Structure formats: C-alpha cells, structure tokens
Amino acid sequence: MTCLLLPPVPASVGAARRWAAPLLPPDLPPDLRDSVVLVLSELLTNAVALTTEGRAAGAEDIEVEVVVDPADGHVTVAVTDPSDQPLPPAPAAVEAGADHGRGLLLLDVLAHDHGWSPRPCGGKCVWAEFRRSTAPHRTGPRRPAAQPAGCSCA
C-alpha cells in the first residue's frame, strides 16, 4: 500500500497520475494500466471539485492510495476526501456535448468493482478495483475484500 496526500487543487490530478503510474506492476496489460490511471484521474478530479466547492483556501488534503495485491496483481485505487457528499446511486445520463459528468460512467465501464463509504471521522472514500483476469465486471457496488486503508480513520 502506498499513499500520497495532495492539496485540493487541479494540479494535483496530474501529480497523482505521475506518482501512481510507476507503482503499477510492470507486466500489467497496457489497457488495464491506462484504465487504472484514467479512473484515478476521474476520482481525484471529483474529489478536488467537491473539496474546494464552497470552502475557503486551506481545505483538508485529499489522500490517494494505490494497493497492488502481490498474489494476483490486482490493483485497487482509493481517493479519500473531506466531503460528506455521497455518490449518486447510478451514473446520470450525460448530453453528448457536456464538458463533465462522465466520471461514474467511466468507473462503471473500466473498473471490475467499485464503491464508496462514508468515514466515521468525516468525509468519504471512493475506491475502484482492477483485476487481471477476464472475469466479468461487478454486478453492483460493494466493498473490496480488503478495504483500502485510506478508507478508515487511522
């Protein structure tokens, strides 16, 4: 498990991508590697927007976590932010020309499993799991077998 704390500013998204890419297993298929990095970018972009929305400068940092299971090479990414705003139960329809609103659609399509949980100490953790196998994608949000550490209040 590797964690990174980032300020809730747009530049943090690129910093997180550059930080996470080398942490992924070198033999991870390129399409899966691209999916992990894209979903991490989407989760962090949402966290930055929600953290800074209606808050003064100096908002709490966002925690980004990458977990690679050594046994099977599955990758879980988690983004923890101080916002208590829950995720919608399902992705909304997005008009073709819209500039945003596709993050949950990408999460549904690219991750094998994903979910979110409120943290007892405030905020929430959103996570996505990527598997090397060709097993079908999830049938509904649920917690991963081992919840990322950033999702707790350690």
Rank of each mutant, 00 (worst) to 15 (best):
L24N: 05
P25S: 05
L28F: 01
P29N: 02
L32G: 01
V36A: 12
V36Q: 10
L38W: 01
L38E: 05
V39N: 07
S41L: 03
L43C: 02
T45Q: 15
T45N: 14
A47P: 13
A49V: 13
T51I: 06
T52M: 13
E53G: 12
E53S: 14
A57Q: 15
A57C: 11
G58E: 08
A59C: 01
I62D: 01
I62A: 04
E63F: 09
V64R: 04
D69T: 04
P70S: 02
P70T: 03
D72A: 09
G73W: 10
H74G: 15
H74L: 10
H74T: 15
T76E: 04
V77M: 10
V77Y: 06
A78P: 01
T80R: 15
D81S: 12
D81F: 06
P82T: 07
Q85A: 14
P86S: 10
P86F: 08
L87I: 07
P88F: 07
P88D: 13
P88M: 10
P88S: 11
P88Y: 07
P89S: 08
P89T: 06
A93N: 05
G97M: 11
D99G: 13
L104N: 05
L104C: 04
L106A: 05
L107N: 03
D108T: 07
A111L: 01
A111I: 05
A111W: 01
G115T: 08
W116L: 03
W116S: 15
S117E: 14
P118R: 07
R119E: 05
R119C: 07
R119Y: 06
C121H: 05
K124M: 14
V126G: 08
W127P: 02
A128E: 03
E129I: 06
E129C: 12
R132M: 00
R132C: 00
S133I: 07
P136D: 10
H137N: 12
G140K: 06
G140R: 11
P141H: 01
P141S: 01
P141T: 00
P144W: 06
P144T: 05
A146R: 14
A146W: 09
A146M: 11
A149W: 08
A149R: 10
G150T: 12
C151D: 08
